[in-house]
Design a protein around this nucleic acid. Structure first.
Lengths: 144, 144
DNA sequence: GTCTTTTCTGGAATCAGTCAAGTTAACGAA
DNA sequence: TTCGTTAACTTGACTGATTCCAGAAAAGAC
């Protein structure tokens, strides 16, 4: 878990102004990977007191745009954010409880990036989502 | 493009009652792959006259649940539906205009299904979304 | 043809996310 | 240190996709 001054460096590195809400959001996402916007707002308010939800939405968008955060939104779920960026990893999503876990790229680098027929599209990223059942839900389903 | 009686067989095969809105929705999705709900409502109304949006939402959910349609929702886009099911193909999405095209599975069958570390998840499907730029947008970007 | 079950209608509600206008604060320059 | 510019934050209303609800209608079974 990086410190506040490390978050500050991250922000400056992205030519973003350093503000308390931004530090708090960065810190919240680092502490709670795959959290949705609402949870992030909750955590940020615990640390800073009153912060408008609008500010959090703005900050999330700014940080995502700057590449400091990554936004993921599996089907049927609201937007979630994580701080692991730049390493092209993927996600497993539990169909029954929605839990998300990280999965390192199976192929090692840019997986499956060669579409068999790309219809003339210039492809720059392949995003993989694995669907299945998390350990808890698998156990629960068996015992029922 | 299947005929109305073929759609009827499909519905009966899935033990679903045969109704005009269902045929119309099936037909609309076959005719307009990757269409969003609103467009589908539009097409259905062109064919049938007044149909409530609720009916279309219900039908789409019923057909998706029965496996006759597949629902896809890339980030930043509303839900879209397509009629190609059961062949595990993937999609390319244009970052600038949102266009979607089908891509056959590069690996031939269940691609990348072997996550390197699955965290105990039981994985049953791998969904791949390729991000890039469609031919039109690529050309437009170059000429500007 | 009658009965039961499923589907359709219309309207209202929900909820994540966005817009707009005004205020505040960060930060580079004087 | 102070000032001015400009990005960031606050407040509050709003949008738009989707869902919920209750009553009316239709489909399929007997």
């Amino acid at each position: 878990m990086p410190t506040a001054s490390e978050f500050e460096r991250l922000l400056r590195g992205a030519s973003l102004r350093v503000t308390a809400p931004r530090i708090a959001v960065l810190s919240a996402v680092h502490a709670h990977p795959h959290a949705d916007t609402d949870s992030i707002i909750g955590v940020v308010r615990q640390n800073l007191g009153a912060v408008s939800h609008q500010a959090v939405y703005d900050v999330l968008r700014a940080l995502t745009g700057a590449g400091l955060l990554r936004r993921i939104e599996p089907q049927g779920s609201v937007a979630r954010y994580e701080a692991r960026v730049g390493d092209n990893h993927h996600h497993v999503v539990c169909r029954s409880c929605g839990a998300i876990a990280d999965v390192d790229c199976a192929v090692g680098h840019a997986p499956c990036l060669d579409a068999s027929d790309d219809h003339g599209f210039v492809i720059d990223e392949a995003e993989v989502i694995y669907w299945g059942s998390c350990p808890e839900c698998t156990t629960a389903a068996k015992s029922s």
